[in-house]
Design a protein around this nucleic acid. Structure first.
Lengths: 118, 118
DNA sequence: TTATCATATCGTCATATGACAAAATATGAA
DNA sequence: TTCATATTTTGTCATATGACGATATGATAA
């Protein structure tokens, strides 16, 4: 079990940026590729990719390659029960935030086929 | 209820520094004044004070003045149940971290009367 | 008042962070 | 092969963070 302070700090830092928190909230809805996330959040492509890497290194999300796409999804809670608890908390924590709510509303309109070209 | 993304980020940032996390762990044991915290963590006085302010502004701790001393303690969980849950989590999260364990062991030896002069 | 002690704030500096554009990789199609 | 697409990596820059010392504030004691 990995409960070092260093790991804890990594998780907290990962959740210290609004865009990364929004990414977690989005991924709690469904699996997403980088370009979908980039589109919803209005970020540069490299910026989105970098944020996703930070979340992945903190153990909060995982990815799998599917052809030219990289699918990101929430990590399952098996690795660390405290992280699992925190992510569970986060499912409801930001329900009254206007920005986050707006994202949740817009997410169903975001379709990979519309954004990406293949 | 205060569940805005901005408040959430403030909490995460407050917990993104090792010294501040240690302060929370120490305050989970007992009430402490600034000079005790400064001594245990080996920080400069201004640095300790500044970190405590950040924790206070995030709603994680509170303080009360007692003469020339300022007593810091954990905030009760009433303000935000998610924060309360997180702090509860933190009671056991870092049990196997060597640095934190060492602090816990040393804390009983730290007495305000020994450090402060009055 | 003056002196002392505990704490807070300010100024400065080195490092960390987050943004973007540009270049590098990797995959799939022609 | 060549081209286009999706993603990652790299470089640069402005801002944020954390450290300290010096100074300011606030309370107690003489």
């Amino acid at each position: 079990m990995n409960s070092s302070l260093r790991e804890f700090i990594k998780v907290m830092k990962a959740l210290s940026d609004p865009n990364r928190v929004k990414m977690i909230k989005l991924l709690q809805q469904r699996v997403l590729c980088v370009c979908e996330i980039q589109e919803v959040l209005g970020l540069g492509q490299s910026t989105a990719s970098k944020h996703l890497k930070i979340l992945e290194e903190a153990g909060l999300i995982t990815y799998s390659k599917a052809g030219q796409w990289v699918n990101y999804r929430l990590a399952d809670g098996a690795r660390n029960p405290y992280v699992a608890n925190l992510l569970g908390n986060l499912r409801h924590w930001l329900e009254d935030d206007a920005d986050v709510s707006a994202l949740m509303t817009r997410l169903p309109e975001i379709k990979r086929e519309t954004i990406c070209r293949s």
